[in-house]
Design a protein around this nucleic acid. Structure first.
Lengths: 120, 120
DNA sequence: CTTTCATATGATTGATTGTTCATATATTAT
DNA sequence: ATAATATATGAACAATCAATCATATGAAAG
């Protein structure tokens, strides 16, 4: 199969011309698809999933999260950075302490839907 | 910070005892959290995301997908394997051809929510 | 200003992962 | 049987990534 040529293959180009056109219309552009994959990568680590579950209950500081998950402060801080960059969590400073919380409702919806799928 | 000891740290253990208990109750068990992260890992690749978007329009054979995404049959087949193992797609054989389609509605919901987040 | 406490970050490393290449399997036609 | 076509799979390799360690920043207290 040589993908760089429009060779006749299966029945696609000839029988399902309408679908091909619809696909080309409806498919988001390359950059959006890349960003979407990058977002899901962030959900694709159990440490980060656990952090998000913790934040479902309440805002928390880094140290609290580290204790509850039985992990080092550094490991948690690194993961919070990733969550922050994807705008999944927000934070506020209070003296020496930094409190993290969920950024918006999408986070919960995405995780809940994922969990429903997993539980089937 | 030594996570393997219950040292006094921040104000967690003393001020927010109720939250700690709620967290311990509401948090899914380790195995479910791991499975959930594994599921999101599958969404965390732009090739797989593209495949899923294609299948939003119609069931398709491997060769169709490879052509539309301008990738090799082998690469697509490997990714379909991952999608199949996570029960995100299903397939039916028709002669030499194998048609793939979306397994259930969660896929669409998860992707749509993710895309909403990305577009903000 | 120095110390202490909470958090952030850069470098390193072992592990995971996506694509490629070669090859195997499965189905149909000759 | 053999050839042709569609798909699947195993090994290999480069790239990515999460945890660790050491260290830096930032804020309050002495």
């Amino acid at each position: 199969m040589r993908p760089d040529e429009t060779i006749e293959c299966c029945e696609l180009m000839y029988v399902h011309k309408d679908i091909v056109e619809k696909v080309r219309e409806e498919m988001p552009d390359e950059e959006e698809l890349y960003d979407l994959a990058e977002l899901f990568k962030i959900f694709g680590d159990s440490t980060r999933i656990k952090i998000l579950y913790l934040l479902f209950e309440s805002e928390m500081c880094v140290c609290d999260i580290a204790q509850l998950l039985n992990m080092t402060q550094s490991a948690i801080s690194h993961q919070l950075r990733a969550l922050k960059q994807s705008k999944l969590v927000k934070y506020r400073r209070e003296g020496k302490t930094v409190f993290y919380s969920l950024a918006d409702g999408h986070v919960r919806t995405i995780i809940d839907q994922g969990m429903e799928h997993v539980k089937e």
